[in-house]
Design a protein around this nucleic acid. Structure first.
Length: 776
RNA sequence: ACGGGGAUCGUCUAAUGGCAGGACCGCAGACUCUGAAUCUGCUCAUCUAGGUUCGAAUCCUAGUCCCCGUACCA
């Protein structure tokens, strides 16, 4: 197996760029769970990401408990988290870290912020704080306590810290901007009073930092370079940056270096399950499951107990990838990864979940044979086990049909089938009880087919699994299915309980297994032949009496409708909403814009002036909104009066170029820009070269004509140069040339692109023409 | 409504102005002592409208839809 290619995604792109630019010399990531619950498969994605990045870049990944809220956190959770991360196959750099290790520093930093007027103690009630924060559309109103003196703030903060104030009476807030469009920036809470016992610091503290204050400081203190979290924290990034920009490293008293940056990716959402801690907690607390490690739970502990392997989970994390799209992953992908891993590692064993007695009429009454079957036919190293066989056997009830469908490959009257690893048998009779229910079958056996091969080489209609009636043993077998009946549960905290799958766990009271299976230790993966992958429960299995959890069914391409909960409706793509230009809704935007514009006299005047020049309204609107842009346009026009051309350049190229330099001093005068555009338009340079020229000009300025030669953008129209360049390019791509000649006309673009790259400044049309000729 | 994100096969995800690729699912076939696995083949996508360009999923303009944000939670 070749090493899997390193996954690349937007985060690896960022890291590559940071490394290349020398912003960082080493990658340090972290996985920062709050110890208030068990880790679930969503965390597994994050763990694989953070630890995987550290591994791939030869850096470090820290495990840090974000234990800033003593009322919900517990040491039990700390232990389960450590165990789960290890189980998943990762190890962290250094000891397990704790946010609580940094409380001293955080309190000190808060005090510094107060001293510098960047934080204050607020005496408003919770309700007042909330009400005064404002809303999306309305600005907040400053707290009456916002202007307290530094001395008073210091004294109050000291009282908070000393435990002299009750919970909720006082709170430390950053002094930022109560009118900020980002609500998180409206004087965020930094520290709150909480007279509570902390699982690590005990009663040392009665003030605890808030996430938004603590997290950036934790990252910075640990030298984290890339702080990766999920999408819902996008708005928090601004505050994250504020904290780091307004604090210093206590060890150097200088700005943080490396200075961590926060990046967000889409969390995992999986169909037919729930992932939120609150919902999971509810399942546990209400007894809907037997605990955090119930095999139905999407927790790592639960999945581990069900028989899902760390390899399968890591494969799954790779399969779903890393991106910023809000996505709902088909649970079938998880199931695929689980099966793929289990297929190659599971022993094969015989088990019958719902037995039907079969008597082999021509088999000697007292004879007992012992069949030696390999545990895993494709891997002899697992060895063999003995399977008893006699006159009275059991088969799966659903493997018999009195009136079978056309393509039936199992037992039916008169039909010869194979007992897996044993003999060919033919059903010759059916026994019923008084109600007419089938209670037993009679079969003849071909005594020359032992081992599953007929002497004459004939093939049976199918193969079924079986068990010796007397010598098999009863077993506890539990079948698991998806937790929920529906793919996408109600968002509501309670409504999803109505959507739990009542069949998520079923026990098989009649189930029996072959003797060797009962002897297997807890924690063994076995495929019950033809029925699914099972795992001997590592907690409940007793020596000689294993308890079996079905990890997952076998893929079933035949009886698809046999399991109701598997009838998975395919998700429909949302039908694209037809756009009716005549509906008022569509035209609303331009109208509101026109209204806004009308209310802004200078803007309206600029707009009118442009329209007067013949600029179409839509373009005039955006050119006139910003005064600087409008001025630039008119300045350029003074040097180059061709309005339509000017408009084209402004709209298609300049808008973006200028946007990226917003606020910066432009390195050219408006008239120079006009001259540059005239040159671009003149035909003296090719269109591609013109765009390159313009990009350079906007960022660096310069004399346009000089730039052309300096950048090597001069128009190439020398026939010999063109021909040579084209031939060189074609010589480099013989396979593509062949394919092109075979009819793949779309490859012309590839050649053209390569040729144009080589022949900078060449006219595309001319190159194209010659290329066509050369390819004849 | 304000701010921040996002939109590519049914699903997840690539393509950083030049061949819309891979995987899951599905379908068909081969093989089979598991209706499994394995193998082969097939179906299927760039939110809309304009523009720039020799060439647009990618750049520009406008629009549509979806997600997140108003906890003394994280």
């Amino acid at each position: 197996m070749s090493a899997p290619a390193k996954k690349s995604h937007f985060l690896t792109d960022i890291i590559d760029a940071d490394l290349a630019a020398g912003r960082h010399v080493r990658v340090v990531t972290r996985f920062p769970p709050e110890p208030n619950g068990y880790l679930h498969i969503g965390h597994a994605k994050s763990i694989c990401l953070n630890f995987g990045l550290a591994r791939d870049y030869g850096g470090d990944c820290h495990l840090r408990m974000d234990d800033t809220n003593p009322t919900t956190e517990d040491v039990d959770f700390v232990e389960s988290i450590q165990e789960d991360v290890k189980w998943l196959g990762f190890s962290w750099t250094g000891p397990t870290r704790f946010a609580s290790d940094y409380f001293d520093f955080m309190a000190q930093t808060a005090q510094d912020l107060i001293t510098r007027g960047l934080a204050y103690v607020d005496s408003q009630t919770v309700e007042q704080v909330r009400d005064n924060r404002g809303s999306f559309e309305a600005p907040g109103v400053p707290s009456p306590f916002r202007e307290r003196s530094v001395a008073e703030n210091l004294a109050l903060f000291a009282r908070m810290r000393a435990g002299q104030e009750p919970d909720g009476s006082l709170v430390l807030r950053g002094r930022i901007d109560m009118a900020h469009p980002n609500l998180l920036m409206r004087d965020p809470l930094l520290f709150r009073i909480r007279h509570a016992h902390h699982h690590r610091t005990g009663d040392t503290w009665c003030i605890y930092p808030m996430y938004d204050f603590a997290h950036p400081l934790e990252d910075a203190l640990e030298g984290i370079t890339h702080s990766i979290c999920t999408l819902e924290f996008e708005s928090n990034r601004e505050l994250y940056d504020w904290v780091l920009d307004n604090t210093v490293d206590p060890r150097t008293l200088k700005p943080w270096s490396p200075r961590p940056h926060q990046y967000e990716f889409a969390r995992l959402a999986l169909g037919y399950t729930v992932m939120s801690k609150r919902k999971l907690l509810q399942l546990v607390q209400q007894g809907r499951v037997r605990g955090w490690d119930d095999p139905r739970m999407p927790t790592l502990a639960g999945m581990r107990r069900r028989g899902v392997t760390p390899e399968a989970l890591r494969d799954f994390a790779d399969l779903v990838g890393i991106a910023k799209n809000n996505s709902l992953v088909d649970i079938g992908k998880l199931e695929f990864c689980i099966r793929q891993d289990l297929e190659k590692r599971s022993r094969r064993g015989l088990a019958v979940l719902d037995p039907l007695a079969v008597t082999l009429t021509n088999y000697p009454q007292d004879k007992v044979e012992s069949l030696e079957l390999p545990w895993l036919p494709q891997d002899p190293s697992l060895g063999r086990r003995a399977v008893p066989f006699s006159k009275h056997i059991l088969i799966e009830r659903e493997d018999f049909a009195e009136e079978p469908p056309e393509d039936w490959k199992r037992m039916a009257p008169g039909r010869e089938i194979r007992l897996y690893g044993a003999y060919f048998v033919t059903c010759t009779g059916v026994d019923r009880d008084a109600q007419g229910k089938v209670v037993g079958l009679r079969c003849s056996v071909d005594l020359h087919s032992k081992g599953g091969e007929a002497a004459d080489g004939r093939q049976p209609a199918g193969t079924v699994h079986w068990l010796d009636a007397q010598r098999s043993v009863p077993a506890a077998v539990r079948l698991y299915e998806r937790l929920l009946k529906v793919e996408l549960p109600q968002g509501d905290e309670r409504a999803f309980l109505e959507e739990l799958n009542p069949n998520s766990e079923r026990v098989c009271p009649q189930a029996r297994v072959e003797p060797a299976l009962a002897q297997l230790a807890g924690g063994t993966h076995v495929q019950f032949v033809r029925t699914g992958y099972f795992f001997s429960d590592p907690v409940e299995s007793q020596p000689g009496n294993a308890v079996w959890n079905r990890t997952i069914t076998l893929r079933d391409t035949w009886g698809k409708s046999s399991q109701s909960s598997d009838g998975r409706p395919t998700r429909k793509k949302e039908a694209p909403k037809p756009q009716l230009t005549e509906t008022p809704k569509i035209s609303q935007k331009p109208v509101t814009r026109a209204v806004e514009r009308a209310a802004d006299a200078p803007w309206q005047a600029r707009f009118a002036a442009l329209v007067e020049l013949g600029v179409e309204e839509e373009v005039a609107d955006f050119l006139s909104e910003n005064q600087d842009l409008a001025l630039l346009f008119h300045g350029a026009r003074a040097a180059y009066a061709k309005v339509p051309a000017l408009v084209r350049w402004f709209k298609n190229d300049l808008a973006a170029l200028l946007k990226s330099r917003a606020g910066a001093q432009l390195p050219f005068a408006p008239a120079e820009l006009g001259a540059c555009l005239e040159l671009c338009d003149s035909g003296a340079v090719s269109s591609g070269a013109a765009r390159q020229l313009l990009a350079h000009f906007v960022t660096h300025g310069g004399e346009p004509k000089a730039l052309v030669s300096q950048l090597g953008l001069a128009k190439v129209d020398d026939a010999a140069t063109l021909t040579a360049g084209i031939e060189a390019v074609l010589a480099q791509m013989p396979k593509e040339v062949e394919r092109y000649r075979a009819g793949e006309a779309k490859l012309l673009g590839v050649f053209l692109g390569a040729a144009l790259k080589q022949l900078r400044g060449a006219d595309p049309a001319a190159v194209r023409e010659r290329l066509l000729a050369a390819l004849q």
